[in-house]
Amino acid sequence: MQTLTSPKATSQTHQDSFLVIENVTKSYPTPNGPYVVLDGINLTVSEGEFVCVIGHSGCGKTTLLDTVSGFRKPTSGEVRVQGKRITRPGPDRMVVFQNYALLPWKTAFENVYIAVNAVYPEKSRQEKTEIVREHLAMVGLEEAMHKKPGQLSGGMKQRVSIARALSIYPQVLILDEPFGALDAITREELQEELLQIWSKHRVTVMMITHDIDEALFLADRIVMMTNGPHAKIGEIMEIPFPRPRNRTQIMEDPQYYTLRNHALDFLFSRYALAH
């Protein structure tokens, strides 16, 4: 934590349009005409940037990230990573799933190994084992390496899932509410770990969250979406806190509350859920 350098200073300058979401619209046909979930989303993310997406449930955040991961195709528009159009899922855009998506019959080690083995088939068994160990150690799971998911707590499972995602060195890391199911203390621990890992790996991150404080602590920019259907990007908020970030420090920063209130106002006044 103490010896981190800011990855942003170097990365943003040479790859400004690393990930481009261009005019993405997603609609589903229904008997009463198309149901439009996303309506013309435009977003450019630089290499190494940490972007959080917030919005109310059902506003299409997951759909948006699915077009980046490739699990869903946009009805119109396209998503490009380094100029290449995304057509299907791939390990260059690894996902940390909401409910971990670990294989319960495999140990933590094997769950990560299957990913490393799929992406680096040419490496020797020893090299692959080394990569797996390194990444499990990074999330503090050396001890529990040979346990199966059933024996791990929610936080540990999510650590395995993060280790699996990072072990294959993706260009983009996609996280769909990764810490939603965890208790407050574990959540804060994992947020800090994620930031450390992110600064080492220099991976571009897109993360969905419901938690404004989480987004303020983690993100370079927060993308706030309007309510669905026809969800759009309502506003993008730059988070100016210097890195490495310290939770207590940024919470003492007067800007923190300005930004926080701004986000709350967006979510609960301007785009409050109609009840």
């Binding site: 991961s69 899922p89 390990p91 996902v95 998506a101 294989l103 019959w105 495999k106 799929a118």
Partner: peptide
């Protein structure tokens, strides 16, 4: 669906998918 998504995002080979994911999950 989660297991299938893992297989898709990792682009597992057919053989790997069958023996590492499909078969154990239907046991």
């Amino acid at each position: 669906q989660d297991y299938k998504n893992v297989a898709k995002v990792l682009r597992l080979s057919g053989k790997e998918y069958f023996f590492s994911i499909l078969l154990p999950s239907i046991v």
